[in-house]
Design a protein around this nucleic acid. Structure first.
Lengths: 141, 141
DNA sequence: TTCTAAATAATACTAATTACTATTTAAGAT
DNA sequence: ATCTTAAATAGTAATTAGTATTATTTAGAA
């Protein structure tokens, strides 16, 4: 449960119950928006204020411990910063799936074509997930 | 100036001065956030209310005439919906560049690897643009 | 021109986010 | 274990963002 203590220490941040609860909860959700997160944490810490949540999230983002996930037509979400990956957003069921995939060829094309130096990338694919696609029997057979 | 009249008509939306001003202004900016946009339009139409701006932007998005651009650490921006392209966000000067590039190979890999059906994609690259990169002479020679 | 559904302006209202400050706490030093 | 203090929190106020309402205006078709 306390694997995030080291992470916080590495950034000279104190391991408060609140921070550990925030990180733990986000980790369990995978991706989560501010309200869902607050409700979830409020169960364990009814005393935690929303201002604390906002402040911590912003702090953790600036220390690159958390990462924003901004998807079209959705409330902003947050996740634990992981190895680079892309997001698959299903427009049917609203699920968000992480896909760890090699993007180097694309990045190299971009660099050579634009002269832009890439530090990191954010990729979202909108469409229909495997499950929903299988449910939807197409009209044409 | 009125090339957007046809666009609006195609969606059965009335070509009000306000809408044309909004589209025209966004078009000129390329990408723009709500406040910059409002200030800009306010010059020509001091009577236009912010509620009208918000309402129109939402309407135009739902008719796929506008598109949201959600970049990390930035206020949400808007742009005229164009052919698919990716965004290059410079962390030095804050510029946002559009790059029209072939992403099909990446998309095909994703489909085959995940079974996800992609309808459209949203790609942001963070890094340093050509101009800023050339300004920053690296310490090692 | 006239007519009408659609759109706007102005304002009120609600939600989201940040700022502030007195109090509490993590964690290093003793 | 206790003390100390800088950092963090709780609670609330203030600010900012966004939506709803309604009387008035307008685009565009007849």
């Amino acid at each position: 449960m306390d694997r995030f203590k080291d992470v916080l220490k590495a950034s000279n941040l104190k391991s408060t119950h609140q921070r550990l609860a925030i990180l733990d909860s986000i980790d369990q959700f995978g991706h989560v928006d501010i309200d869902t997160l607050y409700d979830s944490i409020f169960q364990k810490y009814p005393t935690m204020s929303k201002a604390t949540l906002y402040r911590n999230i912003n702090d953790l983002i600036s220390f690159h411990i958390l990462e924003e996930v901004k998807l079209p037509q959705q409330k902003q979400q947050y996740e634990i910063k992981k190895v680079p990956h892309i997001h698959l957003l299903c427009s049917e069921c609203g699920s968000v799936e992480d896909l760890f995939i090699e993007t180097k060829p694309l990045l190299e094309t971009i660099v050579s074509q634009s002269g832009f130096h890439i530090s990191h990338s954010f990729i979202v694919m909108n469409g229909t997930c495997k499950v929903c696609a299988s449910k939807t029997v197409k009209a044409f057979s």
